[in-house]
Design a protein around this nucleic acid. Structure first.
Lengths: 213, 213
DNA sequence: GTCTATATCCTGATAGAC
DNA sequence: GTCTATCAGGATATAGAC
């Protein structure tokens, strides 16, 4: 029953994944356990998901799960780090774009955020639902706030440059603009109906040019 | 320690609240317990909040809480019903606006949603975080889907009318537009910094006219 | 790598005294 | 209206056999 021979289709770029051995009992590798855990956390909520639930999902006993992972919160930590690292990367790329106006950098930040969100949808979805319920979650929220602050600064720069309307506070523009981006996690599916490029295009079109015909 | 003499500042319009008696042991009324519970659910997450947590928040024992409320899920149900009923009302008002174009009705739906969200912020916040983890939550999600479908239809009507751009699928417009509205629950505070009218104005300005200067 | 069995604690909920 | 005491079940996590 366990789909142990297929590696995760969207493996994290972090920690070069443990090589699949060609012999011996297949079992699970840590990466697969992590992917299944993240999916389950997103379906049921992290707190509502017990290690028993994860064991059932994997077709293992609870103790066998603890062979693969040191704790439930460790799975959460790996997922949140993956999401935050990839968002950091996207943001840094947008901020350091050469020969770009503040307006262009902001557009890059939006499209880059959408792309990152879609590339790491499960982990980012989990991140956006964290409520600061433990030390671990508090730290993740702090990193998220830093990212949000940097995005707000990019909006401010674009307003100062004269590219964006000045009748709405930049902080509010930033909240609403990236609220729209983040709301993707509430409904988007990786079934090919909408790809990242198409979504980024729609969001930038609506946000910058408006909905009017 | 319990702040039992002050009534909830934003009492629900539902079930005429139990009248505060002027004599006898003050204690809590059900409405206050509900408000404090919703706040706690929003801070920690519903599943992560135990009845013991709620008891501590109220300065009561766990059993005393059960004197006021029949179960933890009953508190959730009341909150979700409040949120869904108020959203239904706002939506119906927008849909049945007399002598209005589809475009005008859509704008009414947006401003009405923002107003409702701000008027019932804790309950609506809780609603938007429900993941379908029980029969109760599934039913709430079904009602939410019906509301989302109605909103999508309003967008479709406005596109058909020629008021909105037709190069983006109406379903996508609807998701992004109301994703922006719903993202308010992630950061907005009832501290008077932004009121509902101002937020609705900013959202409709950005969404319909765009961010360009 | 997976299992059974177990330890320890906390969960939602109830009974009954004051 | 609040309390202490208690219940049955489930939580995370560990020990040790195979």
């Amino acid at each position: 029953m366990p789909d142990s021979t297929t590696t995760s289709p969207a493996a994290s770029p972090a920690d070069a994944a443990a090589p699949r051995r060609g012999r011996g009992r297949p079992g699970y590798d840590q990466e697969t356990v992590l992917r299944r855990a993240i999916d389950l956390f997103n379906r049921q909520g992290y707190d509502a998901t017990s290690v028993t639930d994860l064991a059932n999902e994997l077709g293992l006993s609870k103790s066998a799960v603890y062979h693969h992972v040191s704790s439930k919160s460790d799975l959460l930590e790996q997922a949140l780090d993956e999401a935050l690292d990839s968002l950091d990367d996207a943001l840094t790329a947008a901020r350091t774009a050469p020969d770009a106006s503040a307006y262009t950098r902001l557009r890059l930040a939006v499209t880059g955020s959408v792309q990152t969100l879609m590339d790491n949808l499960p982990a980012v979805t989990l991140l956006l639902r964290v409520r600061g319920n433990s030390e671990l979650e508090e730290k993740a929220l702090a990193r998220r706030r830093a990212i949000d602050d940097a995005l707000a600064q990019m909006v401010r720069d674009a307003v100062d440059e004269g590219a964006l309307r000045a009748d709405i506070p930049p902080e509010l523009i930033s909240r609403l603009l990236f609220g729209q981006v983040n709301s993707l996690t509430e409904w988007v599916r990786l079934d090919g109906r909408y790809d990242a490029a198409r979504l980024a295009e729609a969001i930038t079109a609506i946000a910058f040019d408006g909905l009017h015909a």
